[in-house]
Design a protein around this nucleic acid. Structure first.
Lengths: 344, 344
DNA sequence: GGACTGTGGGAAAACTCTTTCCCAGGCTAG
DNA sequence: CTAGCCTGGGAAAGAGTTTTCCCACAGTCC
């Protein structure tokens, strides 16, 4: 039952032309085809409702119009914002976006990358910081290289250190700048809601914050550091733990907005006033979370543009050679969730 | 330069077996292959790192492992929640998800559906209520039918009335139930932040709310209805407009949480206390927005499950015949953003 | 006028897989 | 002992494009 499909051969026949000529017209090849025949072919294609079989094209060209997009969790607004940027670019280019969600599993990541390879995807955009686990990292590098060897291009967002183009926020500087703002407000004792230690993004933000404190001669005490998993609930629980342990901090820095949201919820539940009793700051400036009350002090990242830029880098065909790195600076936004330290 | 790829023929040669036999082993066809040869082929495939060319398979089988997912905006948490459910199912099934974002443009929708058709996608999940515009609706129906005729399956979320399986929230009942709760709280004068009138979801929620009011003998006055576009900023602006016009309502129902968020922001800016001066309710129970303060009264929809269910329906091969409709009931969640009406 | 150039167009190979058809050889049954 | 059957395995025919190679023909130059 191949009846339902119109093939190029049928178009050619209908136009009274050879298959090759029809293909040349449709693809606008370098070879000239007379105006007369061109029009005839196009008219026939239109009339018959011709739609090229993408798999046949891929097979013949050894390259498809698919672009992979790997995120950890599409429901996380951090990733969905970036995804929006990526799709904006790919769709503008007439390409098809393949969405793969990994939930931070190297296993799933491999599976999806293999599928993209099997489909001869043109490019893939990897989003989200990598585990620093040596072994799985090495495996990812091998897979990326296999992909590239097949003519695919790779770009990463927030995932430095891979053999590919990279768009990376300057987490260190952003966190440090935020710290300086908070110090300027008068804070001296900080608590930090850090992320998973094996993720570079989490580490960089922690380090940046820490180094700014050190530079100001301030300590970040060990009992004032708790770790979350970048989720809202993780932030909630870690904050509760922090409260239970009894912190003396006047300001809490959560290394991403999503955890900061959980932190604010935990504080509200404990009846701790933000910012009167405790200032809270986040990182990312997630659009969906801009309406929290009090409005969250944070470091804005242009997430959507980052995704768009990464897609663009992955698909720019003219570029060869060295991997490029685009560094994105965050902008500190002091809003309502931070204030002068309480004098308790 | 076909050098980089390992073909099945190479595997067959390496195993000292014919191409057909190798294919039978790899695909586990009905035809038996002796244990000895089976093992040999598998070993060769493993050793050579064989990865089947997906486009060749698609071409030969006339069906790919691609599943389309069409949403209006992936950064909108409503859609990203549903997308999560869809990908959960497709990835579990070893399928590849193609993400298309339409931004409510029938044009883009067509483009993406055509691409999916060209790729011989196995199924497509359409998310988000349709415009009621007759013409573009008819076009969509034609495209869906073309897709189905090629052996593709279609399922919709929140998009009733199409010739496909559908998962649909019972917007009417949900809104009506919410209205009854609000009436029970003592409210008599309502304002409503409605959605685009041409979207069925928006209309159903408006109608449901309205009919519950009518049933209680209450009027919904014309000047108390404003329309937004389902976005946060739309909700913000419409609420400002409502305020400027001077409403006498004691309760504002925004037909989705995202607009409700904008409404709360506008009210906060105007210094209007929620819920003391004005109660606010939304619809959807968007996970990311659960931490708004005051916590938003809303109607919970199991968005993720809805997506999962739709994907499942689209991919269940055993089902033939009548289109099925799954109705999802929302659950009214009375939280902090609503209270007894102020007595002004 | 013949050789040469350039241009339009067609035949066919290539891309990699699936699947049908057929054959050879070992059984069983009569 | 032979006819018929079953089973494993191979050859080959697609599936729908792209692209290379070649041919025919018209025009140009000596």
């Amino acid at each position: 039952m191949s009846s339902s499909y119109v093939t190029l051969e049928q178009v050619a026949q209908h136009a009274g032309v050879s298959l090759a000529t029809a293909s040349r017209v449709i693809n606008g090849s370098t070879r000239q085809v007379s105006q007369r025949l061109s029009e005839k072919v196009n008219a026939s294609a239109e009339e018959l409702g011709y739609l090229a079989n993408a798999s046949a094209q891929t097979l013949a060209r050894n390259s498809s119009s698919l672009v992979g997009l790997l995120v950890h969790d599409i429901a996380d607004p951090y990733f969905s914002s970036i995804a929006r940027g990526v799709t904006r670019y790919t769709e503008e280019q007439g390409l098809v976006t393949v969405l793969g969600t990994t939930y931070r599993s190297a296993q799933k990541e491999s599976t999806i990358l293999a599928a993209l390879r099997a489909h001869r995807a043109k490019a893939v955009v990897l989003v989200g910081s990598r585990s620093t686990d040596e072994e799985s990292n090495a495996r990812l590098v091998r897979e990326i290289e296999a992909f590239q060897q097949q003519g695919g291009r790779v770009a990463c967002v927030s995932q430095p250190g891979l053999p590919a183009d990279t768009v990376s926020p300057d987490n260190h500087t952003g966190a440090a700048e935020l710290a300086r703002h908070l110090i300027a407000l008068g804070h001296r004792r900080f608590a930090i809601l850090a992320g998973p230690t094996n993720l570079s993004t989490a580490r960089e933000r922690l380090d940046g914050f820490h180094s700014a404190l050190s530079a100001a001669g301030l300590e970040l005490e060990h009992h004032n550091i708790v770790h979350g998993d970048f989720t809202r609930d993780g932030g909630f629980e870690s904050t509760q733990r922090l409260m239970r342990l009894g912190t003396d901090a006047t300001c809490l820095f959560a290394v991403n907005d999503v955890m900061a949201t959980g932190a604010m919820a935990a504080l509200r539940e404990s009846g701790i006033g933000v910012p009167e009793e405790l200032s809270v700051a986040g990182f990312d400036d997630i659009p969906t979370l801009r309406d929290l009350a009090p409005a969250l002090t944070t470091v804005r990242l242009p997430l959507e543009q980052m995704g768009e830029r990464a897609a663009q880098m992955a698909l720019e065909s003219d570029h060869e050679g060295e991997d490029r790195t685009v560094n994105v600076q965050g902008e500190v936004l002091m809003r309502e969730s931070t204030g002068k330290p309480s004098t308790r």
